[in-house]
Design a protein around this nucleic acid. Structure first.
Lengths: 115, 115
DNA sequence: CAGTATCCTCTTCGATACTG
DNA sequence: CAGTATCGAAGAGGATACTG
């Protein structure tokens, strides 16, 4: 791994993943496949329509997800992971695995501090 | 990988890694070992003293790095990765590897758009 | 040397209301 | 249904000056 500023490419992946709901959006689409906007909204409690829209647009802009508009009334818009987006899965899995251990670490730390 | 909100632990790792200079700090310490504050500052062009201090404190708070103060004049403070912090390396490597491919993808996209 | 202290700007996110 | 538009709060990061 080369850390010279011009050769360190960690930021690219990080900037795509950063966003309060982006990991959840990606994990949800990875697991459940194509989803309508309203399905995502329902599946992600707490997110507002405005913010969900924005995060989806940003992921689309990066070619991580695809947005398909079905021209009908009422509107139907479907989102899915692109093949390129699927390449992020190892990173998400690495973070998920780490997070699981982190939970234990946090608990141990709290126990230690409460002695 | 479980994406149910209470079981999805992607956010834990992400929140630790997020910060304009944190990945660079970690990669630098991972590669070069223990470093003084001034060495880090010199190695990371663009960061201000205030922000570098803050990001180091946050990483320390998470037990990712260790801060050792040598009580002497002039002051000497050394930072190093903890064993726990080293566990983040696979994530950083996964992101770095992805970023390398991402560079190619971006170039291809730009070429495509400029046709 | 290794920080604090202020002041500032920019972005992110949320609440709420409106629309084709 | 799938968005926009507007307003507001909070935090990240930067410029600059000061200090034990």
């Amino acid at each position: 791994m080369n850390i010279e500023p011009t050769l360190c490419r960690v930021e690219d992946a990080l900037s795509i993943l950063v966003g309060k709901w982006k990991p959840i959006i990606l994990l949800y689409l990875l697991k459940n496949g194509t989803q309508r906007f309203s399905e995502l909204k329902r599946s992600i409690p707490g997110v507002t329509q405005k913010v969900l829209t924005k995060q989806l647009r940003e992921l689309e802009e990066e070619d991580i997800i695809e947005r398909v508009v079905h021209p009908q009334v009422p509107p139907k818009v479907e989102y899915s992971i692109t093949e390129y987006g699927m390449s992020l899965q190892p990173i998400l899995e690495a973070m998920h695995e780490w997070g699981t251990k982190h939970t234990l670490h946090k608990q141990q730390k709290m126990n230690k501090e409460s002695i």
